[in-house]
Design a protein around this nucleic acid. Sequence first.
DNA 1: CACGGAGGGAACGGTAGCGTCTACTATTTT
DNA 2: AAAATAGTAGACGCTACCGTTCCCTCCGTG
Lengths: 208, 208
Amino acid sequence: MTPATRRRGTELEQAIFDAVFEQLGAVGYARLTMEGVAASAHTGKAALYRRWASREDLLRDALEHALPAPAEVPQHGNIHDDLLELLRCYRDVTEVTKGAVFKLLKIDGEDGYVLLHSVVRERVVAPLRQMILDALRRGAERGDVRPEAATRQVAHVGPAMVMYHCLTESADLPDEMLISIVDEILMPIVTVSGGPGRLSPTGTGPGR
Amino acid sequence: MTPATRRRGTELEQAIFDAVFEQLGAVGYARLTMEGVAASAHTGKAALYRRWASREDLLRDALEHALPAPAEVPQHGNIHDDLLELLRCYRDVTEVTKGAVFKLLKIDGEDGYVLLHSVVRERVVAPLRQMILDALRRGAERGDVRPEAATRQVAHVGPAMVMYHCLTESADLPDEMLISIVDEILMPIVTVSGGPGRLSPTGTGPGR
DNA sequence: CACGGAGGGAACGGTAGCGTCTACTATTTT
DNA sequence: AAAATAGTAGACGCTACCGTTCCCTCCGTG
């Protein structure tokens, strides 16, 4: 029995989606072409155009396909570990999409991004913010998070730091970086009292 | 005496640089072309190619020209106002370059991107970080900043929040947003004294 | 004044990529 | 088995843009 020589249906689509991210990594969004994706996927343009009317349609589907299902809010019972796990989820998303999460966020004038921008906002930015906010609120009820820190603005800090690091320093996000963000930045903001063994300030304890 | 009908030398270059940012705002980096810039500047392509070998060369010069000289570290005598002024400087830079600072940080791939990326890092990201770090260190000496907060990581928080806001919410950066970032995020991290009114800017700056 | 350099405008040949089409054929469906 | 679907490969006409060249003429300088 000879094995099939052609990929069909979802198998071919998976190869095409893989090629999208390979090309995003290799040439960036600005120079991503249908021809390049087709070549990387070892298929013809007609197979792409049979499914997608445009580059942006293809990108949107590739992105939707690559993004994981929404995660559950962690239940570690302490805010430090909850926040760390959420930032790890975020890191994983940026890695699986070859940094597309950041690069497809719209800047004025980049009209082609509109559709993609909203995908990233709805599937990445908003769910992550909501999960962080939920973790903060639960921490506030537990008593290890200051109630005033359970805000939308504070929920942005971790993701903002991750993005800034990736765009200005290195796409590499080792665990030590995530831990540093949680310890040095997030914990001083959110904790009622600094705990022992943490870098959070001890001088912010009771007495306020 | 009839006025000159042609722009020459630096006058023409200024018009070309203006056109670069106009086009960056209108069509984005991906679709920025020499023809588009020339048309926007109401000049011929030959005038561009006489000065710049490529689109990236032109962009680099336009950026270098638009970026302000490095500012001085503020001397307000309190960290709150120092940080606020530095974030305002950052906001001004993003505005004067029509968001180019962020757009160019997103570029990926080979060729000229490395050069543009490094211009933004060397002329915007690194100086701003240094100034924030200097302000934090001076605050630590003064006593209104806790010494453990005078770190590179903490110096990134403000700019990171500004960028995240621009990329995920709105390119508009009203003063209230900058104040909120300083009050709700930066002050809890950097201040030695907490207090029940920590999130309100009580007593942190004269004339507030 | 004359001269040279440069600005403005247009034309040019070339190319990458687009979107479409065709022919062949592998594979699934009937 | 035959028929239908879709994958593969290549060709095609078109467009935008590139980078260069040319011509005319403005403008600064000697």
